[in-house]
Design a protein around this nucleic acid. Structure first.
Lengths: 152, 152
DNA sequence: TTTGTATTTATAATAATTATAATATAAGTT
DNA sequence: AACTTATATTATAATTATTATAAATACAAA
């Protein structure tokens, strides 16, 4: 964790941004909850637990900044809220998501399943792909099992 | 166009909804601007041109209804606004989008490029896919050409 | 007609996000 | 270590998109 913060600090500095305590606190929350998909409000509340003086606007600005630097990805699953998702270190692409329409759970797919598709888009549509967002909506494994059980 | 409205009317009736004049006016706008990705506000303003008495909330409710019936798809490209996109008749899936980060244009891909990927998701992750959202971010053909010209 | 339900309008409320202005602070420089 | 200055933060207000509410209306069935 410290390593990762250190590297992000350098990245910030290289773009002449500072790693303020508020930004560090926000980052720590994101790192601790890496597998979650927190909204700005979620992040705010979690940061507040350890740094109660932080303001909501600061969290928004920090997330925006991290988003520009491609440290986090801003996603929208269709509820009105933006969610923020830490990128895997060195990942060029956004990872994919599996959203269950039964229980609302969100699973991640870290593998890039779109390499072939991107080649097609590039060659057939002449579009130079830089990034993608892919979300599948459907029924997760747990809910499938649950459904089978109740019908038995 | 009339055909299509007629069929949607039947679909509404089959779910015991009515095709009110306001709903029809909204649908007509969506059909006329099928290739666009209008926000609720956009739709409202366009409907208002022909039916000035319509209210914004009605447009929202109509779009919500059409969305439930899978007649339109609600998409979010990351700006704060939801956009509404008419489905191709009979299409089971959402179509894909190419969003240009230079000029902001949005192109559509009607073909389903994800059949193979969905099979993988199904078999490897046990996730029963029902729908997907796929957006590519990058540089469109026009902007690529423009970039080449200016550097020459 | 009458009645009941669905729909709409107009407006208010809510919720997420962004802007503003005053204040505080990080980090380089002396 | 104190000084300086651009940058960042806080607290609050403003904005924007969307949803809820209540009264009015339309409309289909009895």
């Amino acid at each position: 964790m410290e390593h990762r913060i250190e590297r992000i600090k350098k990245q910030l500095h290289s773009e002449s941004y500072k790693l303020t305590p508020q930004r560090e606190a926000t980052l720590r929350v994101l790192l601790e909850r890496e597998e979650d998909h927190l909204s700005a409000e979620d992040v705010y509340l979690l940061v507040k637990e350890k740094s109660p003086e932080i303001g909501l606007a600061t969290v928004y600005r920090t997330l925006e900044l991290l988003s520009e630097l491609k440290i986090v990805d801003k996603i929208n699953f269709g509820d009105g809220v933006s969610r923020y998702d830490l990128r895997k270190e060195g990942a060029k692409h956004f990872h994919h998501h599996l959203v269950c329409i039964e229980c609302g759970s969100v699973e991640e797919i870290v593998n890039d399943l779109l390499e072939d598709v991107e080649k097609i888009v590039q060659s057939e549509w002449g579009f130079q792909v830089q990034d993608h967002r892919l979300t599948f909506h459907g029924i997760c494994k747990q809910c499938q099992l649950a459904a089978v059980k109740t019908t038995q």
